[in-house]
């Protein structure tokens, strides 16, 4: 800075004009960036969702977003309404319903463990899970992705609803390693109990909410 530091303060209108000028340049830049990237972002999000759903529901080829509310189910437009639950309906090439996918989240060792689970409408059971995001300890917590024995829990995890259609007939429960007896129990991974429990609690919470809303209307999803 070579010019002498001015003793007088700058006039207010100069400050206002400069700030206004800078703000408008910046505003134009941001709007421009938003407009030009919006399509690519939406496309990326769709691909990401499809990839995750296809993984938990093998054979699916098309995904639609729906929302389940106490007044029924409808295709999702805009934001999820209060008390509603977002889920994905997956169809194969011929348009046959392959299953439903929904998200579940539970507090793990380090942060929320978010998983996507695939639900089969015929057996009323969960037929696969995939991890959406987690920050568990590598080598321990990430066994929920790699441990084949653990993933077998989700070959047919029972989430039937009770007769009144108010909740699950049997709450999904994590049990100690090697003591799984019922189809609604999850056999914990020895040494990674916290992460397994997070998955179990998350699925239970999500299924308890979604299934009673979804099951009475499941026929509406059939084309």
């Amino acid at each position: 800075m070579s010019e002498p530091i001015p003793v007088h303060t700058s006039p207010s209108n100069k400050m206002i004009i400069t700030m206004g000028l800078v703000a408008s340049i910046c505003g134009v830049l941001i709007v421009g960036a938003y407009e030009s990237t919006q399509d690519a972002i939406a496309n990326n999000k769709r691909i990401m969702v499809e990839r995750a759903v296809f993984k938990v529901l093998p054979g699916a080829a098309k995904v639609s977003e729906y929302v389940a509310t106490p007044s029924g189910i409808q295709a999702l437009t805009g934001n999820v309404p209060e008390g509603g639950m977002k889920f994905y309906a997956a169809y194969d090439q011929a348009g046959v319903l392959k299953g439903i996918a929904a998200e579940a989240a539970g507090k793990g060792y380090a942060d929320m463990v978010r998983v996507l689970y695939g639900y089969d409408t015929k057996c009323q059971c969960i037929i696969g899970i995939g991890v959406v995001s987690m920050r568990e300890t590598p080598g321990i917590g990430d066994k929920i992705i790699t441990d084949k024995e653990f993933l077998k829990n989700f070959d047919a995890l029972d989430v039937r609803v009770n007769a009144e259609m108010s909740a699950l007939a049997n709450a999904v429960k994590v049990v100690k390693h090697g003591s799984k007896q019922n189809a609604w129990e999850i056999d914990a991974i020895a040494g990674a109990t916290v992460t397994t429990k997070a998955v179990g609690r998350g699925i239970n919470e999500s299924a308890q909410k979604l299934m009673p809303l979804l099951v009475p209307h499941v026929k509406e999803l059939l084309p």
């Binding site: 960036a33 938003y34 990237t37 690519a40 972002i41 990326n44 990401m48």
Partner: peptide, 9 residues
């Protein structure tokens, strides 16, 4: 925005 458009992961 640009990073979201390039790669969500």
């Amino acid at each position: 925005y640009i990073i979201q458009a390039v790669s969500l992961s």
